[in-house]
């Protein structure tokens, strides 16, 4: 089957500085691919090139087999792109925003009516059709932006940090909507700074300094974290900090009342012993995606 999105060796530099090097990926219909990475890793650059908004220095992007550079006009109706700062018109109502975007895509009156109803129901914005977009809450704005992005029924949805600044309840709701879309056969490519969101993707690529430094299913990535984490409850951080100084490379993180000590596997025994001598009982802490992310960013890969 032709992948919905097929990217080969995509590269781009800004003023001679590489922003993205050698990005390759394939995304099938119904798939959800997550792109995570620190600020400036090249996420937005990659997404803009995939939409044909930015010319790559090298590599190619194919959407349903069509080349983004050559067949731009044919590809546009296939892609829905929601940029990081998707701007709705704050002085237009929910309805007027939707209408504008449907006119932009040249929909017929019937199509417009039909999709409007479907999208309003889908995004649960029906009660607010006459409210001005500027007066919507952050979560509702994002849903409206999503509805506007979906108005031409794209096959591929590209979302650049869609939930930044949105509260947890709205984020959950938003991702439930994305899940529905994927189940309906749409292909989704999403970037996010939230690890809990990344965990909802079928496949994740971790981008750092323009390069993919790790990728796989979320569970695979957390499992391949090469170090060990020990958890201490209610210990004095200062005392523990002093204690672990003897162990090279051990990192200490605070999480409210608990402390996480990250060490190499061969250090674990010694560290536990030292802690026990100080009357501290460390428990093993299973690594999360975030731990994997940190390690990969700090060391350039998930290798030990």
């Amino acid at each position: 089957m032709t992948p919905v999105l097929d990217i080969r060796s995509l590269a781009r530099a800004w003023d001679g500085k590489p922003a993205l090097r050698d990005l390759s990926l394939t995304l099938q219909a119904g798939g959800m691919l997550g792109l995570i990475g620190p600020d400036g890793a090249g996420k937005t650059t990659a997404m803009r090139m995939a939409c044909g908004l930015l010319r790559p220095d090298g590599g190619e992007v194919r959407v349903l087999g069509l080349d983004v550079q050559r067949d731009g006009a044919a590809i546009r109706p296939l892609i829905g792109y929601m940029p990081q700062r998707f701007s709705l018109y704050p002085d237009l109502s929910v309805d007027e925003n939707l209408r504008f975007f449907s006119e932009l895509h040249g929909l017929s009156r019937d199509q417009r009516q039909q999709r409007r109803e479907r999208l309003l129901a889908f995004s649960r914005l029906e009660p607010f059709t006459r409210r001005r977009a500027g007066a919507l809450s952050g979560g509702m704005k994002q849903k409206l932006a999503l509805a506007c992005t979906l108005i031409h029924e794209p096959r591929l949805l590209i979302l650049d940090e869609p939930t930044t600044g949105v509260d947890p309840v709205s984020r959950q709701e938003f991702w439930d909507l994305l899940g529905d879309l994927a189940r309906g056969g749409m292909a989704l490519w999403v970037s996010t700074p939230y690890m809990d969101e990344a965990e909802r993707c079928g496949h994740i690529q971790l981008l750092h300094q323009g390069q993919v430094i790790a990728e796989g299913r979320p569970a695979e990535l957390s499992a391949s974290f090469p170090r060990r984490i020990l958890r201490l409850e209610g210990a004095d951080p200062q005392a523990v900090r002093q204690l672990v100084q003897a162990f090279a490379g051990v990192v200490l993180h605070r999480f409210g009342h608990s402390l996480h000590l990250v060490c190499d596997p061969d250090q674990e025994e010694g560290l536990r012993l030292a802690l026990r001598q100080a009357n501290l009982e460390a428990k093993p802490q299973p690594p999360t995606l975030e731990d994997a992310f940190f390690h990969a960013v700090a060391h350039g890969s998930l290798a030990a």
């Binding site: 890793a41 700074p193 940190f294």
Partner: peptide, 10 residues
């Protein structure tokens, strides 16, 4: 920390 990546947040 709104919109800041996990490394910067930590």
């Amino acid at each position: 920390t709104g919109g800041v990546d996990p490394v910067a947040r930590r």
